[in-house]
């Protein structure tokens, strides 16, 4: 378990102090895939570097299974870091070493025998699906392949935690999905706790179980992905979950309601059944729904009919649907 307690990080700059993180408290359970999302500059990268102390927090505690990293001496910290691997946006492979030697590198540091290390490295090449790249140099590989080698390297010393710092941000969408699938697979098979830093909600949707929303160095909200996506509680959360915003003021209708999908089956044709079951036609004024692990999350803005009994019928029908919450949008200005 990773516990971050009241972490603050202040960078001294020429223009005064920069508060990169303020009073961040997070608990990441074993086996979680924990997403930390925020806009660029929110402090995500600094936060993830506090977990392995690449950045030392100005104040606060970093506890890994109860042991306080900040209190450790250099030697103990180095030992601890071997159980916390990290992958990066720019892969950070050693360009003068072959892929096999790159994967061997952390084992070399940990004084694993060369023959054992190479055997393990070849196994890992299989795990990441690049068994034929042992003798290739990173410069000969594509971005996705480089990240696979970096993942193999990260797994070399059997870590318990894998930190992913914008690990897919330099990759195209398809490669991103492949890499995320690999990370998810590793999480499931090896039970490694994964911390994912990203600015892309799609990445969180794809693999995370939990999410924390970071804004201006503060944690705005945390929860399971289902909770946060279905009903973001904070402005920062809404901004990330619905990046295009929902501009109700521009929508023409008599009465506007917002319904939120909280995880029913994704594509149940709610609006169609509303029309068939109670003969009410509603306008879809705006929608932002997404499919998380086969369940529907998101919101939809509906314009109800002008006729009050008709509108009431629709409201009553929607109220009876499972996995849907409904509210009237009162600040609608036609």
């Amino acid at each position: 378990m990773i516990e971050l307690k009241n972490i603050s990080k202040v960078f001294p700059t020429a223009e005064g102090e920069l508060h990169a993180l303020t009073d961040v408290t997070l608990t990441i359970g074993d086996g979680d895939v924990y997403g930390i999302v925020g806009m660029s500059g929110a402090g995500k990268s600094t936060l993830v570097r506090c977990i392995n102390l690449l950045e030392r927090p100005t104040s606060g505690q970093v506890l890994i299974d109860g042991a306080d990293l900040c209190a450790m001496d250099q030697k103990a910290l180095i030992a601890q870091r071997r159980s916390i691997s990290m992958i990066f946006q720019q892969f950070n492979l050693l360009m003068q070493r072959t892929c096999l030697k790159n994967i061997c590198f952390p084992m070399e540091i940990a004084k694993v025998k060369r023959a054992d290390a190479e055997k393990r490295a070849r196994e890992l090449l299989d795990v990441v699906g690049l068994p034929d790249k042992a003798d290739a140099y990173p410069a000969q590989l594509s971005g996705g392949q480089r990240q696979r080698i970096a993942i193999a390297r990260a797994l070399a010393c059997d870590p318990r935690i894998l930190l992913c710092d914008e690990a897919t941000s330099a990759l195209d969408p398809k490669t991103t999905r492949d890499i995320l699938r690999l990370i998810k697979d590793i999480n499931k098979r090896l039970g490694i706790t994964v911390v994912v830093i990203t600015h892309e909600m799609a990445v969180v949707e794809e693999i995370c179980t939990h999410v924390a929303i970071l804004d201006h160095g503060r944690v705005m909200e945390t929860g399971t992905v289902e909770e946060v996506f279905s009903n973001p509680q904070t402005e920062a959360g809404r901004r990330l979950v619905y990046p295009d915003g929902v501009h109700i003021a521009q929508l023409p209708a008599a009465q506007v309601i917002r319904i939120a999908f909280n995880g029913g089956s994704s594509y149940e044709p709610l609006i169609a059944s509303l029309a068939i079951d109670c003969g009410v036609k509603v306008n879809i004024l705006g929608a932002d729904t997404r499919n998380v692990n086969g369940q529907a999350f998101g919101t939809m803005l509906l314009g109800l009919p002008e006729d009050p009994p008709e509108a009431a019928k629709a409201v009553a029908y929607l109220k009876n649907q499972p996995n849907i919450t409904m509210e009237e949008v009162r600040d609608y200005h036609g």
Partner: peptide, 24 residues
């Protein structure tokens, strides 16, 4: 980034010099 990666793997200063900085 290479130095950061090496540090994240638990390299000592000397190891970073010998195994990362000079060879790279």
């Amino acid at each position: 980034g290479l130095i950061e990666a090496a540090q994240s793997m638990g390299c000592s200063t000397l190891q970073i010099v010998w195994k990362v900085m000079l060879p790279e």
